[in-house]
Design a protein around this nucleic acid. Structure first.
Lengths: 237, 237
DNA sequence: TCAAAAGTGTTCGCTTTACACCCATGA
DNA sequence: TCATGGGTGTAAAGCGAACACTTTTGA
């Protein structure tokens, strides 16, 4: 057994894009194909070793810039995974023990437009990872599940959903973000009232033009007033 | 600049004991006096380097056993602190960079009875750390604040408060735990209703005897049904 | 029989939910 | 003028807060 513990920083990056089949907005994330052992050929979360003069977040940001061309506006620590047997697989036998500090990120629609995939990087809709990319390298499957649960939980009590959107947006678009993340339909009128009551959003005074219907007001997220919980309810069907 | 990053595991341990002045139940925690540089003589969170064949939680548990004689029933990861300048002090200059994975723990009343303080270990009421133990070594003051916020937040939506109590307890004692943690009085009748509605507690059928008044029912915490939020309200005064 | 804490009942007001309905625009 | 999504109104149900009131014990 080696007595060196390596420290790595990885990130689960979420973005919202249309689903390839249904066309509905869904969560996507980038994975990197491993080009060496252990787990050569498998998909893994983007990450890398922590450099000695680099802060943890900085390390996450640098890796994401390198692999996806992105600098997500929301980047938050998820958890530190460090069990001795955390990649209990034949592939990993004989390799050094790695403690990973994992971050999770949300990419705004505007930011997402800048995405440039690096070598061996590919984006997947989360609901297709099971068929197309599993099993992930190391314990990254477990980490991904954990990140998803955290995202879904946090969206209900904190205004992070805004991070998926550009500077200004109509409320219906914000609702579509919630629906995509929570994977269920929300009542438009009640949604509007709750968001406005929360004060996490402010009217820009402008409206979106060029719609095939009544032009919706544009809002921007109100930085200070991000307090208080939001209880999202679902409509039937 | 050194290119070696050291990995340590530390823990913020909370226990409830009577306040030395008021006699009311308050939060206490153990600190360890540093006996070498950096920060020699200052108080720090119990912790130590991560051993190569040790899991993260195991490391936390081993340190706590060694320093306090305790094996807390609730032990949960708090956060990984790893900024390059996280102990930006003259004391720390020239010392290796350390990434700390910090846990927090709750000690049950029954467990607390077993506490045996090791060398250089002392317990402090949290509200007296400012006068008696500050400034803490490294960034441990920041970490402690963060742990306190997390404890107070989590107590309102999860039944962790039970961890402070022995197997069986009357509801009034559980209420006193909430009051100590949240630092405010709660309405006994509404508290009772909320806890029972939650289902996080079950009737043992027994009662506490030897009280100077009507003997209260004894409850035990119901492991499975720890769902759903609890909104605690305060009584005035 | 009194004090003290356990435990129950009830009212008030606010929030959530469901859903009907009106508004403004492009086609 | 019609279809479509934006946006408002509102009544019913549910829930938290406040607090009066009953119960049960030891002293």
């Amino acid at each position: 057994m080696q007595d060196r513990i390596e420290l790595a920083v990885s990130t689960v990056v979420f973005s919202l894009r249309p689903h390839p089949e249904t066309g509905e907005l869904t969560l996507w994330l980038p994975l990197v194909r491993r080009i060496r052992e252990p787990y050569e050929g498998r998909w893994a979360l983007p990450g890398g070793p922590l450099a000695p003069e680099e802060n943890l977040v900085e390390s996450a940001r640098a890796t994401l810039q390198r692999t996806t061309g992105l600098t997500p506006r929301h980047l938050e620590q998820l958890y530190a995974f460090g069990d001795v047997d955390r990649s209990h697989s034949a592939d990993a036998a004989g390799h050094a023990r790695v403690v990973s500090i994992v971050y999770w990120a949300l990419v705004g629609e505007d930011e997402d437009a800048e995405a440039v995939d690096g070598e061996n990087v590919e984006w997947f809709p989360v609901d297709e990872i099971a068929e197309e990319a599993e099993p992930l390298a190391f314990d990254h499957g477990v980490i991904l599940d954990y990140a998803l649960r955290r995202l879904r939980a946090k969206v209900t009590y904190s205004p992070i959903a805004h991070a998926f959107l550009p500077e200004e947006f109509p409320l219906a678009q914000l609702r579509r973000v919630y629906e995509a993340v929570l994977n269920r339909a929300l009542d438009p009128s009640n949604f509007r009232r709750q968001i406005l009551a929360q004060g996490s959003v402010e009217d820009t005074g402008r409206r979106q033009t060029g719609t095939a219907h009544r032009p919706p007001k544009l809002y921007r997220s109100a930085p200070g007033r991000s307090r208080y919980a939001l209880t999202i309810q679902e409509t039937d069907q």
